[in-house]
Simulated assay, not measured.
Amino acid sequence: PWVADFRDPWFEEPPEAGTPPTVHWGSRILERRAVSAANRVVASTRQLHEQLAARYPEQPATKFTTILNGYDEADFTNLPELSRQNDAMTIVHAGMLNSEFRDPRPLFSALRQAADEGFIDLAKVRLRFIGAGEFGDSESVRLSIAANGLASAVAFTARMPYQAALTELAGADMLLLLQASADTVGLVPAKLYEYLRLQKPVLALVQPGASAELLAETEGGGWCVDPSDNAGLRDVLTEAYREWTADALSQRRAPLERLSRFERRALAGELAGIFNELVV
C-alpha cells in the first residue's frame, strides 16, 4: 500500500509570489496524481486534511486522515531544568526569520510601546534568536532594533546542533513562535510541539488557525496574538512581564498529560494502524 503523507501543502492557491507558472502547474498535476494513486492520504493538521479532501471531492472521504506533528520524548530526557527564572525576562526564538511571516519587528514595536507606557522595564527584557538567517542580519531588522531602543536587549546566535538548541530553549523564560500569514494558518510547525514539551510558556505571533487551536487545546501553554494587533501584543507582553516579575510565568505551561498524544511513538502507532487497515 501507498500512504502519501503531507506535512505541508504541495502547492498554494494563489501561488506564492515568485513561483514560476510552470512550477505551479506541474505541482498541481503531481499532487493530483499522488492523491489519486495513494491508498491513504495523511495530513499534518485538520485544516490541511479538509483542504485536500475539498480539493479532490471525487476521492472517497475515508481516504483522507490526520496525523499531527509532534515531538520525540527521548530528546527531552537529559535537558537541564531552569531552577529559577532569569534575571531578565528571556524570550528565545529558534529558526529562520523572514519578512513574509516570521518577522520579529512587530514584537520590537510592541515592547517599545509597553515600555513607553510604563508597563515594562526594557532593562529587564532579553530577546535571543538562534539561527535567524540573513533576515536577522538585515538592515531593516537592525534599524527596527535601534529605533525601538533594544540594542542591548536583542542578541542573535548562529545555528547550532539540535540538542544544543533544545538546551538553550530550556533556559528561556518564554519561547517565541513566528508564523503569521494567510497560507500558514492551517499548519502547525513541529517547533510548537517541542516548545510545549519544554514546559515553557509560548508567545505565538500567529493569525487565527491551527497553531492557535493547538495552544487552546493544550490549556495554559501561552498566548496567541496576531502581530498586526499592536495593542493586543503590547497587552500580552505586559501580562507576561507582570507574571515574570511575580515569579509566576513559569507556572504557565501545558500539562504533560495533554501533550502525551503528540509524542512520536503515539503518532507512529497511528500510522501503523493505517498500514494494518490497508494490508488486511
Rank of each mutant, 00 (worst) to 15 (best):
S99T: 11
R242Q: 14
A231T: 12
R128V: 09
F275L: 14
D226R: 10
G136A: 15
N86Q: 13
L30M: 12
V35F: 11
E31K: 09
P227Q: 04
L97T: 11
F275E: 04
P15K: 02
S144V: 10
T167E: 14
G70N: 07
S27R: 09
R7V: 11
E263C: 07
D229T: 10
L192Q: 08
P60T: 07
R265S: 11
V206N: 05
V225D: 01
A4K: 00
R159A: 13
D173R: 06
A94L: 14
F262T: 08
T22K: 07
N86S: 13
L203C: 06
D75S: 08
R102Y: 00
V23G: 00
F135V: 01
T157D: 11
E50V: 09
I29Y: 11
Y56S: 07
E168G: 00
K124L: 15
S181N: 15
V280L: 09
P21G: 06
E213W: 00
L198M: 00
L127R: 03
H49D: 15
E58V: 06
L205N: 09
K200Q: 03
Q113D: 10
P14A: 04
P14L: 04
N276K: 13
R261E: 13
A74E: 06
S144R: 13
D183N: 13
P14R: 00
W223H: 06
W10N: 02
Q113K: 15
P1H: 08
F275D: 05
Q179S: 14
D247L: 08
L256M: 13
P255Y: 11
D183R: 15
L214G: 07
E117F: 01
A34G: 04
A170V: 02
G220D: 12
L233H: 02
Q47E: 14
A216T: 12
D235K: 14
D87W: 00
T167M: 09
I91V: 15
W244M: 08
L48Q: 14
T77F: 06
S250H: 14
E270G: 04
K191A: 10
R7E: 12
G95N: 09
A272W: 04
L256A: 09
E31F: 01
H24V: 01
A4H: 06
L175H: 04
A151I: 10
Q207R: 15
P20W: 02
P208N: 07
A272V: 11
S99F: 03
V225H: 12
T45C: 11
T62Q: 14
S181I: 01
A268P: 05
R32H: 13
